[in-house]
Design a protein around this nucleic acid. Structure first.
Lengths: 121, 121
DNA sequence: GTAGAAGCTAACATCGATGTCAAGTTCAAG
DNA sequence: CTTGAACTTGACATCGATGTTAGCTTCTAC
């Protein structure tokens, strides 16, 4: 598929898809005319990239991480180096703390929302 | 307490604390000389502010939200307007999706980490 | 072949919390 | 008093993903 369809199907802008490629997160074949041609697989990959961005990882770390991930259709094509593993552990712990905080914040919001609806209901 | 102690106790920089005040998120008494004097309560408040920032809320929204929150020592000093409630519901849903994504990302990281340690262990 | 939709590259803009630096003031202890 | 730590305001810098615009090319359908 071409970039427009990928953008539509993932909800990620074309701008960002090109940026991902530039950062080495996403590879595309090219048509003879130079347009990007993505495999079906790209949809899942882009979504995963977005999730990792949302988790606060930077593109550089994601670029290191991606080859070590189990793909939809197979095992990882690389094994994380000890150095990378250490980084990933740090990130995972950070994400864990983040999740705790988010749950906290969500509960706070819920409380305010409920207080307001009770006030009226 | 003064700003240095508050910064130390919350892990938030003095710069950020002043910024919070400027954004109307945090109030401080002033000494005759003009220095900020915070109540004990400020510690919890700053932590909560940080959590809301981490949840992706902008200072403006937080400023609207804070007066509607139950304080450590009492009920809320304001009730959210319908308009605000609508915003908060949107935010809460976004946070919920975010939590799902984060759990997802954490599991992916765990898998990579475990694959690497198995490979060596 | 031609028109219009879709893609390409490149450059510049944005946003918002936070870092940092400078020059001056206040506070606490000797 | 005086000294040094802590504080003040203000201005400018940063970071990184993404938006936006411009000028040009390719693709698709008639």
């Amino acid at each position: 598929m071409r970039i427009g369809e990928l953008a539509r199907r993932t909800g990620v802008s074309e701008r960002s898809l090109r940026y991902y490629e530039q950062q080495g997160l996403l590879v595309a074949e090219r048509t003879p005319g130079g347009q990007r041609e993505y495999p079906e697989q790209a949809v899942d990959r882009v979504i995963r990239i977005q999730e990792l961005f949302a988790a606060g990882l930077h593109s550089k770390k994601i670029a290191q991480l991606l080859p070590c991930m189990r793909d939809a259709d197979g095992g990882p094509s690389a094994i994380a180096t000890p150095r990378l593993v250490a980084d990933l552990v740090t990130e995972r712990d950070r994400i864990d703390r983040m999740i705790t905080e988010l749950v906290n914040s969500r509960d706070v919001l819920d409380e305010v929302i409920n207080a307001a609806s009770q006030d009226r209901g």
